[in-house]
Measured scan of single mutants.
Amino acid sequence: TQVHVDGVTYTFSNPEEAKKFADEMAKRKGGTWEIKDGHIHVE
């Protein structure tokens, strides 16, 4: 599962880990995350 944050791609083999990471990054940025085309995007 790929997580895209500010133009950087992080790859996780476990989708649950990817979601936890996205959640943390979104909180830090004061933003949100969503799943697009099977990838997670942090806004």
Score class of each variant (00 low, 15 high):
16 E>I: 10
16 E>N: 10
26 A>Q: 03
41 H>I: 13
30 G>L: 05
7 G>Q: 06
18 A>T: 01
5 V>T: 04
39 H>I: 15
25 M>C: 14
26 A>T: 08
20 K>D: 10
22 A>W: 01
17 E>T: 10
26 A>R: 03
23 D>Q: 12
25 M>K: 04
3 V>M: 01
4 H>C: 13
9 T>L: 08
24 E>G: 05
25 M>I: 13
5 V>S: 07
36 K>W: 07
37 D>R: 01
3 V>Q: 00
11 T>V: 12
39 H>Y: 07
32 T>E: 06
36 K>N: 06
8 V>W: 11
31 G>R: 03
2 Q>I: 13
38 G>W: 02
11 T>R: 09
42 V>I: 12
21 F>D: 00
24 E>F: 12
35 I>P: 03
2 Q>L: 12
15 P>L: 15
42 V>T: 02
19 K>H: 09
3 V>A: 01
20 K>L: 12
32 T>Q: 09
41 H>S: 07
6 D>K: 05
1 T>K: 04
16 E>F: 10
40 I>F: 12
17 E>W: 07
17 E>N: 08
22 A>D: 01
33 W>Q: 04
16 E>G: 08
16 E>H: 09
27 K>Q: 13
28 R>V: 14
26 A>G: 03
18 A>W: 01
7 G>E: 06
13 S>Y: 10
42 V>L: 07
12 F>H: 00
26 A>S: 06
17 E>L: 10
34 E>I: 14
17 E>M: 10
8 V>D: 09
31 G>N: 03
2 Q>T: 11
30 G>E: 06
6 D>E: 08
19 K>N: 05
4 H>I: 09
4 H>T: 08
24 E>C: 15
37 D>F: 05
39 H>P: 02
21 F>Q: 01
4 H>D: 05
8 V>I: 12
2 Q>R: 11
13 S>Q: 11
8 V>C: 15
25 M>E: 14
26 A>E: 02
17 E>S: 10
15 P>K: 09
24 E>I: 10
30 G>M: 04
22 A>P: 00
4 H>R: 06
5 V>E: 02
33 W>I: 11
6 D>P: 01
12 F>V: 00
38 G>M: 04
42 V>H: 03
9 T>G: 03
12 F>L: 03
8 V>Y: 13
14 N>S: 11
38 G>F: 04
37 D>S: 05
5 V>G: 03
10 Y>A: 01
33 W>C: 11
30 G>C: 14
10 Y>G: 00
20 K>M: 12
19 K>I: 15
4 H>M: 07
3 V>K: 00
43 E>N: 14
11 T>N: 09
12 F>A: 00
39 H>W: 05
12 F>E: 00
40 I>E: 02
13 S>K: 10
3 V>N: 00
23 D>F: 07
3 V>D: 00
11 T>C: 14
28 R>F: 14
29 K>E: 10
9 T>A: 09
40 I>N: 01
42 V>Y: 04
6 D>R: 05
31 G>Q: 03
27 K>C: 14
28 R>L: 15
18 A>Y: 01
9 T>D: 04
32 T>C: 14
32 T>I: 10
15 P>E: 13
6 D>A: 07
26 A>I: 14
8 V>F: 12
30 G>T: 03
19 K>T: 11
15 P>A: 11
6 D>V: 03
29 K>L: 15
34 E>N: 09
1 T>A: 06
32 T>S: 13
6 D>I: 03
4 H>N: 05
30 G>K: 07
15 P>N: 08
36 K>Q: 08
36 K>V: 13
34 E>T: 13
16 E>Y: 10
43 E>K: 14
2 Q>W: 12
4 H>L: 07
24 E>V: 09
27 K>F: 13
9 T>H: 07
22 A>K: 01
10 Y>E: 00
12 F>M: 01
26 A>L: 06
5 V>I: 09
40 I>A: 02
32 T>D: 05
14 N>K: 08
11 T>F: 14
34 E>C: 14
5 V>R: 01
35 I>G: 04
37 D>Q: 05
42 V>P: 02
38 G>I: 03
23 D>K: 10
43 E>I: 15
26 A>P: 01
35 I>Q: 07
4 H>A: 04
19 K>Y: 14
19 K>Q: 10
29 K>G: 13
24 E>M: 11
34 E>G: 07
9 T>K: 08
5 V>A: 07
38 G>E: 04
43 E>A: 13
41 H>Y: 15
23 D>S: 11
24 E>W: 13
17 E>F: 07
18 A>P: 00
19 K>E: 12
36 K>L: 10
4 H>Y: 12
38 G>A: 04
37 D>Y: 05
16 E>R: 08
40 I>C: 04
19 K>C: 14
25 M>A: 09
35 I>F: 12
14 N>G: 08
2 Q>S: 10
29 K>D: 10
39 H>V: 15
25 M>Y: 09
7 G>Y: 05
43 E>S: 14
16 E>W: 10
29 K>V: 15
39 H>A: 12
24 E>L: 11
24 E>D: 10
41 H>V: 13
41 H>F: 15
3 V>R: 00
22 A>L: 02
24 E>Q: 08
41 H>T: 10
3 V>Y: 01
26 A>H: 02
27 K>D: 11
10 Y>V: 05
39 H>S: 09
17 E>R: 07
25 M>P: 00
8 V>A: 11
1 T>I: 13
23 D>P: 00
24 E>K: 09
10 Y>M: 04
32 T>P: 03
13 S>W: 10
27 K>I: 12
43 E>D: 10
17 E>Q: 10
18 A>G: 05
43 E>F: 15
42 V>F: 10
22 A>C: 04
5 V>Q: 01
3 V>C: 03
40 I>V: 04
31 G>F: 06
21 F>A: 03
27 K>M: 12
13 S>G: 10
2 Q>E: 10
7 G>D: 08
24 E>N: 06
1 T>E: 03
31 G>Y: 10
23 D>L: 08
40 I>H: 02
29 K>Y: 15
21 F>T: 01
7 G>P: 01
33 W>A: 05
17 E>P: 02
28 R>M: 15
18 A>M: 01
31 G>D: 04
37 D>G: 07
